[in-house]
Design a binder for these strands. Structure first.
Length: 649
DNA sequence: ATTAGGG
DNA sequence: CCCTAAT
């Protein structure tokens, strides 16, 4: 297509600070370059290539997870995870797709950016490639190298990003498996448990590294540079897990739960420097930066779903407002604590180093309470409403809740088994670790069931007619989800997948498997009330939804669109998409259809009334003629069909 | 998942 | 761009 620019991205000079003894000397440093031939390539795709290349070139990454972050002024714009394990000659490559994600203190990038855009936005200042593993024991050996490397970065490093690298591009010869379908298993042999920790930072953009916009990175560097303590090297990553909602697949249906990390998660980074977390968790720094959401591999990318995805993003952005102190507070207080925090936010982080630190830190961020219905009179004051909500929430949380642990969709029944025994700490399992809130079988004061204990509902104290059932601000899940207990699950950050963004703060997923969970929810009894709920839900949803960011069509895009429509007509938007916008992930066929609509409109109005980047008249003329032509064709088709049906009758 | 249209 | 109904 004419509009596709070819860009070459070169990568070189990344370093592998931590490599197992056996192989380190031979390959402590590697470089490669990869040609990326599509400027519309999703950041992720590039990352996958990078990761794949890493795997291909470096045997150093044993049984580890490689996360590739692209980010700069903003945290990361994408996050790809490659799991690969090596066993003798065999390699297991598993690439898990993880599109976007990220946020810093104030910004959440709520949709994937393609590289072109990222570049425009200045997000490609830095590429951060990290390799994670279960163990960080080897890291210390490479302390010096690490420091050296980071010093170098701090000085400006050797950025290497541009239209081409040093005039020529070396084809990375990356197997397709790295960039096409995910996950990709090259081999399914059971992996040996050789682990290593590696951190690689690849400065991007040849001329400069703008550190002003990446303070976290700077901090990391400083830490590494001046701290001789091996434990503080800061180059490794923890098996950080994020909380995400969980719901048995059987009930998920088409809509998967999506969660996103709240921005504050990422604020943890610098804090680690002086906190105890830091020492116990060598690999935390980068990981903390790597706020991300996950997506089911099989998740399709329909506009609708994507939208919902963004919704989650934005929501968590607004909710993730507590600092790390708050997080620890919440953690310490446990799920039942602190009802004063109305938002019920819990922040999650888990770090583990099997070999060096047996402790696992878990904090839970932003769980939601199950849907709650409250009745109050129209004339009630806001204060009254607050009070009632508070009461309802405290009643529920304090009324004998029990926390259940779910792993891989199954309840962990044995309370006495250790985390290790249950496999909770295993990388694969972290993804599916979840917590549930359930009514306690023998609670001090059993949570009232709505049926039996109407007192759970707030009754109006006046004879006023009831007009409102309010769902609490905490909860807003799919309608069917709301009557089930919330489940919060931990997911490995590095494993985040694409669409199923799981925000600790958002979705509480439904879990129909717990029958008694219904007791958590007060269900309005009047028909009236039931009828009201959808309305509230709807209006609330509109507040939560994050619109996709606006991306005006460029002239070249219009050109491509016109050309495609001229060829294919106006009724085959999917084909148009495939033909002309196949790699423009942000342009859906609906977008194209809409654009065509506006183009036709634009072409019909006077130039004075047009706005935005002016479209060449020549193109508009083609729009009109194509539109006329295909309208005519369509009419003909319909006429033909008419006659056919007539003949049949 | 796509298409077609209204908002 | 979003939202939906209808395919």
């Amino acid at each position: 297509m004419a509009l596709q620019k070819r860009l070459d991205y070169g990568f070189t000079g990344y370093q592998v600070p931590a490599i197992p003894r056996s192989s380190r000397s031979a390959r402590g440093r590697r470089s490669f370059k990869k040609k990326v031939e599509d400027d519309k390539m999703c950041a992720f795709d590039l990352l996958a290539i990078v990761a794949g290349k890493l795997l291909q070139e470096s045997e150093a990454f044993h049984a580890s997870t490689t996360s590739v972050l692209v980010g700069g002024g903003h945290p990361a714009i994408a996050n790809a995870t490659v799991k690969h394990e090596q066993h003798d000659e065999d390699k297991l490559l598993k690439v898990e797709r993880t599109d976007l994600v990220c946020c810093n203190e104030s910004v959440i990038v709520s949709q994937p950016k393609d590289f072109q855009r990222a570049q425009d936005d200045g997000d490609l200042e830095l590429i951060n490639i990290t390799a994670n593993s279960n163990s960080s024991e080897k890291f210390a050996q490479n302390k010096n190298k690490n420091r050296k490397f980071f010093n170098k970065v701090e000085e400006g490093g050797s950025p290497c990003f541009g239209e081409s690298y040093e005039g020529k591009v070396v084809d990375g010869n990356v197997p397709d498996t790295c960039s096409s379908e995910y996950p990709m298993d090259l081999d399914t042999k059971p992996p040996p448990l050789v682990t290593s920790d590696s951190s690689i930072e690849v400065p991007m953009r040849r001329d400069h590294i703008v550190r002003r916009s990446f303070p976290e990175f700077r901090d990391d560097v400083k830490v590494v540079s001046k701290d001789d303590d091996e434990n503080s090297s800061g180059c490794t990553q923890p098996s950080t897990v994020t909380l995400k909602a969980y719901r048995p697949a059987a009930h998920i249906g088409d809509r998967r739960m999506r969660k996103l990390f709240a921005s504050n998660y990422w604020k943890l980074g610098p804090k680690l420097k002086d906190g105890e977390l830091f020492n116990s968790d060598k690999r935390s720094i980068f990981r903390n930066r790597k706020t991300c959401y996950t997506r089911q591999r099989s998740q399709r990318n329909s506009p609708f779903k994507r939208r919902k995805l963004y919704e989650q993003s934005s929501r968590s952005a607004s909710e993730g407002r507590i600092g790390s102190e708050d997080m620890s507070n919440l953690f310490n207080k446990g799920l039942n604590g602190d009802a004063s925090r109305a938002s019920s936010s819990v922040v999650g982080q888990e770090s583990s180093s099997h070999s060096t630190d047996p402790h696992v830190k878990l904090s839970i961020k932003s769980f939601r309470v199950p849907e709650l219905f409250i009745e109050i009179p129209e004339t009630a004051t806001v204060a009254f409403l607050k009070k009632k909500v508070t009461e309802a929430v405290t009643a529920m949380l304090g009324g004998g809740l029990r926390v259940g642990v779910v792993l891989g969709g199954k309840k962990v029944g044995d309370d006495n088994s250790t985390l290790l025994q249950t496999g909770i700490l295993h990388d694969d399992k972290l993804d599916s670790l979840g917590f549930t809130l359930e009514p306690n079988p023998s609670p001090p004061s059993p949570p009232p069931s709505c049926d039996e204990d109407p007192s759970f509902l707030v009754h109006c104290s006046t004879p006023q007619p009831l007009t409102r059932y309010l769902t609490t601000p905490f909860e807003q899940g799919p309608s069917d989800a709301s009557q089930y207990p919330p489940v919060i699950s931990l997911s490995n950050l590095a494993e985040s997948d694409h669409d199923s963004v799981l925000s600790p703060t958002t979705d509480i997923s439904a879990n129909k498997t717990t029958p008694d969970s219904r007791a958590l929810v007060a269900i309005p009894t009047s028909v009236e009330a039931l009828a009201m709920i959808p309305m509230h839900r709807k209006s609330k949803r509109s507040e939560l939804v994050q619109r996709r960011i606006r991306r005006p069509f460029s002239v070249s895009e219009v050109e491509a669109l016109v050309q495609a429509v001229e060829k294919l007509g106006t009724g085959r938007w999917r084909d148009v998409k495939l033909r002309a916008f196949d790699n423009a992930k942000h342009r859906t066929y609906v977008d194209l259809k809409d654009k065509w609509k506006t183009l036709v409109h634009t072409a019909r109005i006077s130039p004075q009334q047009r706005r935005g980047e002016p479209v060449p008249q020549e193109l508009l003329d083609r729009v009109l003629s194509a539109h006329a032509y295909w309208s005519q064709q369509q009419a003909k088709q319909q006429a033909k069909q008419q006659t056919e049906t007539c003949l049949l009758l």
